[in-house]
């Protein structure tokens, strides 16, 4: 069964024209997929639909075989606990240290402190920031902040990682570093969907590229 399956998926924001139109696409478990296209093409919109931040206007969106476009509001938190979301501006909480930022998704579920500690350290270890757990976000560099954001996204061991311009604020070297983290997670079976305009990153890392143009899926190519 495929992990993501869109059929005739469309999104139209209230009082705006179609942001996504008739998207048909299937992503298998374990794929690393790049989502690209000009500004306003609908990349973020597709990710927001997948995270149920927005609801589709039409068509069907199946995750793991389950239709989620009409998932009741109360079920959304549970659904998101199985996702890892990474943002361009990391969105760490400034008044909590690195450890607590990464622990947030586990605290929400009421996880045992022993398990929280184990998983947070494992996640920080993977992004190479084990020594920074007592630091606050403001004390970190941009690249480190983004890595903490990634640690937070993977701490729950999600099956699917969604990243919206994760390297948008970083220089090419740091961007490549972040991408290498994604490929590492991908190699252990996590499905990764990255939206980016960065052509050099795509050239370097892409296995599969989805090209959006004015809300339509224009290309779906394997590198």
């Amino acid at each position: 069964m495929s992990l993501i399956e869109c059929r005739h998926l469309g999104k139209r924001y209230a009082g705006s024209k179609e942001a996504l139109l008739d998207i048909n696409l299937t992503i298998q478990r374990g794929e690393l997929v790049f989502l690209t296209g000009h500004s306003g093409a609908g990349k973020s919109t597709l990710l927001r639909l997948l995270a149920l931040i927005e609801r589709p206007s039409r068509g069907s969106l199946r995750i793991n075989g389950h239709e989620i476009s009409h998932l009741p509001d109360v079920a959304i938190p549970r659904y998101r606990q199985n996702l890892g979301i990474i943002f361009q501006d990391h969105r760490l909480l400034p008044d909590r240290n690195v450890y607590e930022n990464v622990a947030l998704p586990l605290r929400i579920t009421g996880a045992e402190p022993r398990i929280v500690a184990k998983r947070v350290r494992a996640a920080l270890d993977k992004v190479g920031l084990l020594d920074k757990e007592r630091s606050f976000p403001a004390q970190l560099s941009a690249g480190q902040q983004q890595r903490v954001g990634i640690a937070r996204a993977v701490v729950n061991k999600p099956a699917l990682l969604l990243a919206d311009e994760p390297t948008g604020n970083l220089d090419p070297t740091l961007s490549a570093e972040i991408m290498r983290l994604f490929t590492a997670f991908n190699q252990v079976g996590v499905t990764v969907l990255v939206a980016t305009h960065d052509r050099s990153l795509i050239r370097q890392f892409a296995e599969r590229i989805l090209l959006l143009r004015r809300g339509r899926l224009q290309g779906d190519s394997h590198a």
């Binding site: 998101r80 606990q81 979301i85 947030l104 929400i108 579920t109 729950n156």
Partner: peptide
């Protein structure tokens, strides 16, 4: 607001 939003995004009810 930011804390609430982020918490919602990582699955907080």
């Amino acid at each position: 607001r930011e804390e609430v939003t982020v918490t919602k995004l990582v699955g907080g009810s």
